[in-house]
Design a protein around this nucleic acid. Structure first.
Lengths: 198, 198
DNA sequence: TCAGTTAGCAAACGGTGTTCACGTTGTAAA
DNA sequence: TTTACAACGTGAACACCGTTTGCTAACTGA
């Protein structure tokens, strides 16, 4: 039953946006009264919280399929970043729910959900490999993690809110995205040669 | 009178968030009836649109003060980026209204407001200077513009939605932000020496 | 003086998330 | 077989929301 509510809700949300779907409409879709939904969910936030979790599970799955088996961590970051952006463009409602809502508005227990943490740790691990390989020069992992995440996240967000389309002639987005990814992943200034050090 | 409504609205919005302030509450704050507000604004969106414009005017002003007179375009980008993030953290409601709402939800005429375009062009000009100086290697301006904007925008957004605080030990944010800015602005792989060409 | 504009308001419309008292139904123990 | 009880579903209501409508006053210019 919970399942039936969630499925109806998911379908409506994806089609019409989270804000444009009311409890009453979900209830209508499954031909129940609005009050019935509250037998299965404390409130609307809890429904969103569950859907967010499912979104993360699907996201992590897809990312693993796409990038999981790539040996080169830098290439893994590139494919992962492309996946992040593609997900944002293909599933804007889910992207918004998972990555754009305030954490405390959707995460009821105050801790990030397990699946969202898994996706973070996979990303972080790739970054740490790159740092160890000196891909970006002499730099700490935290800095790289949030720099790169900010980069793809910001791009996805700017596109989804219509800010890129307005400013760029109507060329295909994909090549631009790839150039941007390439630029954000460019090698850093490499540490000096051994001779230079003491 | 429009002014009085806007001022009351602005005060409430900044304090309580745009979503938590209703027309009725604004009307209450100036001791008018809700219907009176509709003499001066077509709807709530129009109020937000006007406030957005004012926000941009103030933003451009501040950015000019901070970075306008810096000769080195790369340093100008750094200070400008820091200003963008600082603005986002200091005025999260305005940041959200100006940079996070869907364009067509707040921009009534379908074209971006003048002041928001001015801020874009100032930024873009600095990037073009950098590209000409070969700061980032052989790369087109569009790529750099959206890479850097995505970088600071994404960072501001991740911080404001609580995603950085959750993942990073409670150290001071400022040093991390500066390291991230430095990383995002790192020099690119430089074009080959003249001897290498031809 | 009289017409026309302007400013403000009470009431209502249709919507929202949520709660509550009330039945109905199915099951399991007495 | 009867009784008790929990689970499920509902209609009506509460307190909001943005917005519209019809109505008064008050002011303005001719």
């Amino acid at each position: 039953m919970r399942r039936r509510i969630l499925d109806a809700a998911k379908q409506l949300f994806v089609k019409e946006g989270f804000d444009n779907v009311s409890i009453r409409r979900i209830a209508g879709a499954i031909e129940y009264s609005p009050a019935a939904i509250y037998r299965y969910f404390r409130n609307k936030r809890e429904m969103l919280s569950v859907l967010r979790d499912e979104g993360f599970k699907q996201f992590v799955e897809t990312q693993k399929e796409r990038a999981g088996s790539i040996a080169d961590p830098l290439e893994r970051l590139r494919i992962g970043g492309r996946g992040y952006i593609r997900f944002a463009l293909n599933e804007p409602e889910y992207f918004h729910l998972m990555f754009c809502t305030k954490c405390d508005e959707v995460d009821l227990e105050g801790k990030l959900a397990v699946s969202s943490m898994e996706s973070y740790h996979l990303f972080r691990q790739s970054v740490e490999e790159c740092v160890e390989l000196n891909c970006f020069g002499d730099i700490d992992a935290d800095t790289v993690v949030f720099s790169l995440w900010s980069g793809v996240h910001g791009l996805a967000h700017l596109i989804n809110t219509g800010r890129v389309n307005v400013l760029v002639n109507d060329l295909d987005l994909d090549p631009l995205i790839d150039r941007i990814l390439g630029f954000q992943l460019r090698p850093g200034p490499h540490v000096k040669n051994f001779e230079d050090k003491s």
